[in-house]
Write a protein that binds this DNA or RNA. Structure first.
Lengths: 203, 203
DNA sequence: ATTAGAATCTAATGATGATTAGAAAAAAAT
DNA sequence: ATTTTTTTCTAATCATCATTAGATTCTAAT
């Protein structure tokens, strides 16, 4: 009823541990996978005991769902942010670069979260999949739109399957989370090279 | 000492169950991941009890090692087979198509094995990784050679990082195991499109 | 200081799972 | 038919783990 002023600080504190737990969970899920990660491990990383997790999350499954959900949100937001920087009437070339740069940025900057998404595709309870599907499909839809634009502009040749092209680009991008080391290429470099290869090939 | 004639049949029978177990293990590892798959599950699929597995394999880890080893062998052999079909002095273009076609064929035809490799990157005991590294590195070396050829022929432009290109191609190819349905594109189609995009871009 | 609520801990429960030793059954050899 | 060898099963061990209930500590407001 009257939780206006009173709850300001406590809520903040609670939210902080939630976030910490979420981060640690993402980190461990991405490194070892869903099943190999125990709640004890996650709790320990956050400086607490396994049982205490249940004050913040209803179950291991619920924890995973939040990690995956946040992961999709991060990717979606990052790409969205790049698109907004463009003119309203951006070309396919510009759009493609923005999408690739945004996707790579999200994948590589928040790799704990995003790698969790990529790695744990099959090893997660059905309920988890279901819970994340909407966001995933929405993001896919954005990419489809970009491909349609490319086709209409003639930037993608007519006989090239745009679904295939999209999956190639996403595959190449996602794979970067497997090998990327922050001491090598910059994300900007990566995005530029990827975009140019997909636009013009390796020649 | 004298096991010439006598062991012919028994060895064959034993080998058969070993292979069956290996297949079932690959299937389940690829679908649910290493940790989520119990020996009980694998044994049940092969019509036996968990304990009996130990007559054929020393441990769950050993089983996984064999699956991953076979997976790398399959990919390596399939690509090797495609290369042998070419003239000795094949061009980069021809080589690239053969590599991509071979890789995709292996990935998609033996997806139980190969998906296991791709999916379980992080979630497997260190010992397993170590055991498979040699074969993996050897295969990578083949790809590196092809890229070098491309550079020398001038088929890959000088300012394009050949490591990056290789990783893009492998990423795009590996990702196909996530979405490929045998009722859509043929593997031949896929390989042709992939090759053409990497050579000439989407335009 | 006292107290209500928030946050964490302890200790138990019930499952599941890899692994093993020895019994049993199946197949092959004598 | 009997013995050997191969293969599978049974039953137990030991470990780990998600989850829970109740006790405990911590925090912040009175």
């Amino acid at each position: 009823m009257d939780q206006h002023v009173t709850q300001l600080k406590p809520v903040l504190k609670k939210e902080k541990t939630r976030l910490l737990l979420l981060d640690k969970a993402a980190q461990m899920f991405s490194q070892r996978g869903y099943q190999s990660t125990s709640l004890k491990d996650i709790a320990a990383e956050a400086g607490m005991k396994a049982g205490s997790l249940y004050y913040h999350f209803a179950s291991k499954e619920a924890l995973m769902i939040e990690v995956l959900d946040k992961s999709m949100q991060l990717i979606s937001d990052t790409v969205g942010g790049e698109i907004e920087k463009l003119d309203d009437d951006f070309s396919f070339e510009e759009g493609l670069h923005a999408y690739i740069f945004g996707h790579l940025t999200a994948i590589l900057k928040h790799s704990d979260y995003t790698t969790t998404t990529i790695r744990n595709n099959g090893q997660v309870p059905e309920a988890v999949h279901k819970a994340v599907r909407v966001k995933r499909e929405h993001y896919e839809q954005q990419w489809r739109k970009l491909m349609r634009q490319g086709k209409e502009e003639g930037a993608i040749r007519a006989d090239l399957d745009e679904t295939l092209l999209r999956l190639m680009i996403l595959g190449a991008s996602n794979w970067s989370s497997v090998w990327f080391k922050s001491d090598g290429h910059s994300i900007e470099d990566l995005a530029r090279e990827y975009t140019s290869v997909f636009l013009k090939g390796c020649k």
